[in-house]
Write a protein that binds this DNA or RNA. Structure first.
Lengths: 244, 244
DNA sequence: GGCACGTTTCGGCGGCCGCCGAAACGTGCG
DNA sequence: CGCACGTTTCGGCGGCCGCCGAAACGTGCC
């Protein structure tokens, strides 16, 4: 449990901002949450190796994050699978990442490769980010699918365009159709919300995009290149560098 | 500066989530940011007294928050005025507060009074929150000013209704007209975005609401009661308890 | 049943960080 | 000009917390 007294749900209870922030104020726990932004479930051991700490350390951190409700866990045999608790949690971590100061680039050839791959194209929980994500946002804007006055909104053309791509929107949710999400590599917004999620899942499902490393990084396939350049008008340079 | 190396803006720089979280992971700094959510500028001494720490301690905390870009400061004579750096910063703190665990209610008669006042009605940087904020959100929804399918949006009726109230919307911003903001006392959304800000500033300007304590808490005046009940149909119970 | 492996618990170490008080600085006011 | 007051700097204290390794636990596999 946290350092404060047991959480109360009664009247007058006020948010313990420091308690939440403390959970993410540690390099290791922050690394866990950032890794989990790929939306998949990781085992405790995978996260420990990823963050470069002993399994015992990772175990304690995970317990804290799960108890606080940031992560959800599923025990399967001798594995402990863990993922972000909800879309809201993912959005919070996204928002904080965008506001966070930028750390020095990683050292080591492998790490630099991974970092560059993430900068070219990645998923941000359930939508696209990186140079690719921003280019797609620009493209759909140029096509008139999304208008930006008074906040981002989906146009009628956008609705038919998405349908033509085979990207289905959920019906009657409270979730915003289009949400602007500040990209931390490009420092410009990309498309989140139901539309961003539909585009991304359709692209992965149709094989326009693949995840080479199994992580957050995405790569554009040959078919993807045709579709994204043809239908959306995404510039060739971006597709090239985000391609094979 | 932060514990990590100097922030880089070059390629491959990745967000230091832990560094940002560390800033808010302290009770005192968190209390500062929460207090500053009223949108006004506070002096260092006021914040120190508010958080119950020595002025020297507050000074150091403020330096850290300003250096990190979370707060903006204005030096005036022997006073150091400090406020949240931007609307984005305020929204981040709001979002984190909504996700944070709830601490035990405060002790002491005065603190309980303040806490109850906040729960009845308060500002959330530039819009309304608390029981009053949620009631207003419900009312404008019932009036058909705001629709919630596929995320909150302003209807045509809403536009004319706002104009009739004298609440002016800014022209052509990238800011969303309506944004949903989870209320931490009511656990239900209230209205943020340009519409929420316009409603709140109009209400304060017209004297429908006043800030009795000079903090975030707001109180409904007699005229306010007439307008909010008459035009918006806000229930009388809420207006009564949020009134004088 | 026994081994391997992923995970957990516990003790102990080390470092970081928030706190204060004392003293100094600068500004505004009388 | 000198005092009062808001603020800052610095040293030092204390506590918290993240880390590891060793040992134990439980599961799956041979």
């Amino acid at each position: 449990m946290l350092t404060t007294t047991r959480p109360t749900t009664g009247e007058g209870a006020q948010p313990d901002l420091a308690a939440l922030a403390s959970l993410l104020a540690d390099r290791t726990r922050a690394a866990f949450c950032t890794a989990l932004l790929d939306g998949r479930a990781w085992t405790a051991g995978e996260l420990a190796r990823h963050a470069g700490v002993a399994p015992s350390t990772a175990s304690e951190h995970l317990t804290a994050l799960v108890e606080a409700g940031l992560l959800a866990e599923v025990r399967q045999g001798r594995h402990r699978y863990v993922r972000l608790a909800s879309r809201e949690t993912a959005e919070l971590i996204e928002a904080m990442s965008a506001a966070a100061p930028k750390a020095a680039p990683p050292r080591g050839l492998r790490a630099v490769h991974r970092s560059n791959a993430l900068a070219r194209g990645r998923t941000c929980y359930d939508h696209l980010a990186g140079a690719l994500g921003v280019a797609v946002a620009d493209a759909v804007t140029r096509q008139g699918w999304i208008a930006w006055e008074d906040g981002p909104s989906l146009t009628a053309e956008g609705r038919t365009g998405l349908a033509a791509l085979g990207a289905e929107l959920p019906a009657r949710t409270r979730r915003p159709l289009v949400r602007s999400c500040l990209d931390w590599t490009e420092r410009r917004p990309h498309v989140a919300g139901a539309v961003g999620a539909a585009l991304c899942s359709r692209a992965l499902e149709a094989g326009w995009l693949v995840r080479p490393g199994g992580g957050r990084a995405v790569r554009v396939t040959a078919e993807g290149r045709t579709v994204l350049a043809g239908t959306l008008g995404v510039p060739d340079e971006v597709l090239e560098s985000a391609g094979a």
